[in-house]
Amino acid sequence: MIHKCENIKIPLSEWGLSRLTSLKHLIIGGMFPDATSFSDDSHLILLPSTLTFLSLSEFRSLESLASLSLQTLTSLRNLEIYNSQKLQSILPREGLLLDTLLELTIWGCRLLKQRYSKEKGDDWPKIAHIPRVANDFKSTSKQ
């Protein structure tokens, strides 16, 4: 867990997390208060493909997760996103989240709530394949 470290000045793109091939769970949040993206390099892989659980929270200015290259996280089963009010998109540039994702949780993200609300949001069809989607307005499970 890396949380509430607002004084860290080294960008996530320079941490070398992608080399930590034993890393399975990562919780990160409450840092980089002015960052709108995790990286300016769309080809840079920031996280290891071995991650099964990723939780991101309290990124005040973050607008997109596209720079995380979520499509490279081929082991990812659970993705949680909390309290990131300016976050507009969780989708990678390819437009779909991985089929391996079993659970997506979104809480306190006003713009995501609009885009990914069940059957009403413009991007609901892009996450509808996920067996469990939970957010601050309802939870859906495919049984």
Results as ranks from 00 to 15, higher is better:
residue 59 F to I: 10
residue 7 N to G: 03
residue 49 S to D: 09
residue 103 E to R: 06
residue 95 G to L: 08
residue 73 L to M: 12
residue 77 R to D: 09
residue 86 K to D: 03
residue 105 T to Y: 03
residue 80 E to A: 12
residue 48 P to V: 01
residue 11 P to M: 15
residue 139 S to R: 03
residue 60 R to M: 11
residue 5 C to D: 01
residue 34 D to V: 13
residue 57 S to Y: 08
residue 48 P to I: 01
residue 64 S to E: 01
residue 121 G to E: 09
residue 142 K to R: 15
residue 109 C to Y: 05
residue 128 A to R: 15
residue 102 L to E: 14
residue 76 L to D: 04
residue 37 S to G: 01
residue 118 K to T: 03
residue 138 K to F: 15
residue 98 L to Y: 06
residue 110 R to C: 13
residue 75 S to N: 11
residue 96 L to D: 15
residue 88 Q to C: 10
residue 82 Y to T: 02
residue 8 I to K: 03
residue 8 I to T: 10
residue 21 T to R: 10
residue 87 L to A: 08
residue 117 S to T: 07
residue 81 I to P: 00
residue 47 L to E: 00
residue 128 A to T: 03
residue 56 L to K: 05
residue 48 P to N: 06
residue 57 S to H: 04
residue 72 T to H: 15
residue 126 K to W: 02
residue 23 L to Y: 05
residue 110 R to H: 11
residue 98 L to N: 14
residue 143 Q to T: 09
residue 22 S to C: 10
residue 13 S to D: 05
residue 67 S to W: 01
residue 23 L to C: 05
residue 58 E to G: 12
residue 9 K to T: 09
residue 2 I to D: 09
residue 111 L to M: 02
residue 71 Q to E: 13
residue 46 L to V: 02
residue 108 G to S: 04
residue 37 S to P: 07
residue 40 D to A: 06
residue 31 M to W: 01
residue 24 K to T: 10
residue 15 W to Q: 09
residue 127 I to W: 12
residue 110 R to F: 10
residue 128 A to S: 07
residue 42 S to T: 14
residue 103 E to P: 00
residue 91 L to T: 06
residue 61 S to G: 02
residue 25 H to T: 14
residue 41 D to R: 05
residue 54 L to T: 01
residue 58 E to L: 13
residue 62 L to Y: 11
residue 53 F to Y: 14
residue 58 E to R: 14
residue 90 I to P: 00
residue 96 L to S: 12
residue 47 L to H: 00
residue 57 S to P: 00
residue 87 L to D: 08
residue 131 P to N: 09
residue 106 I to E: 03
residue 6 E to S: 15
residue 104 L to F: 02
residue 50 T to N: 04
residue 96 L to H: 09
residue 29 G to M: 08
residue 19 R to H: 11
residue 97 L to K: 11
residue 89 S to I: 06
residue 31 M to N: 10
residue 7 N to E: 12
residue 115 R to Y: 04
residue 111 L to A: 01
residue 107 W to H: 08
residue 93 R to I: 08
residue 134 A to P: 00
residue 5 C to N: 02
residue 110 R to Y: 09
residue 68 L to W: 01
residue 6 E to K: 15
residue 108 G to M: 10
residue 135 N to R: 14
residue 79 L to A: 05
residue 38 F to M: 01
residue 113 K to S: 14
residue 134 A to C: 03
residue 51 L to E: 10
